[in-house]
């Protein structure tokens, strides 16, 4: 199970976060993002969460005003994809404390921290919720500490 990319799109069609796990040109990235934004926003809430696109499967899940979209290979398990999205959202919810779209906009670095602890090269690298949260909190502590100020200055 390897994820090719993860994109967060708002209901207004704005991209809030992207992560690409395969080498893709900027042009292709823009095309995929644009295509998927149009495709997913035009789907109703009760429609299937899995769509075929190019040579891959697109799995998306809507949480409040945000769509979490991932692309996986055709022979990968789509239910596993849905679970990974859900795990990511759950961990963000813990890391931020009731996460919302606004939290991700104004604290996007934390969303990337959580994602980087959860996924590496498109594969789940840490399945323990506690462990991911612990590492993200450690990074937060480091960022807020005086030592970090000294290091970057």
């Amino acid at each position: 199970m390897s994820i090719k990319f993860l994109i967060l799109i708002s209901r207004q069609g704005k991209v809030r976060l992207t992560k690409w796990y395969t080498t893709t040109t900027q042009k292709t990235k823009s095309k995929i993002t644009k295509d998927l934004t149009t495709l997913i926003l035009s789907r109703r809430a009760k429609m299937c969460n899995i769509v075929e696109y190019q040579d891959m499967k697109i799995i998306y899940r809507r949480y409040a005003s945000l769509f979490f979209v991932i692309g996986i290979d055709n022979d990968d398990n789509e239910l596993m994809g849905l679970e990974i999205i859900h795990r990511y959202v759950e961990q963000m919810d813990k890391a931020y404390g009731k996460v919302s779209e606004l939290d991700i906009i104004f604290g996007f670095e934390k969303a990337y921290y959580v994602l980087d602890e959860l996924l590496l090269d498109g594969k789940v690298q840490e399945s323990s919720k506690k462990e991911v949260l612990k590492r993200v909190l450690n990074q937060d502590d480091l960022e807020g500490s005086e030592e970090f100020d000294v290091l970057i200055n």
Binding site: R11, A45, A64, I105
Partner: peptide, 22 residues
């Protein structure tokens, strides 16, 4: 308020769009 998918709807959604606008 929110619908069954916990999405803000109606007047609350308008406010949400404004709040999340850049």
């Amino acid at each position: 308020g929110t619908n069954e998918f916990k999405e803000k709807v109606g007047k609350d959604r308008i406010k949400e769009i404004l709040e999340t606008h850049e």
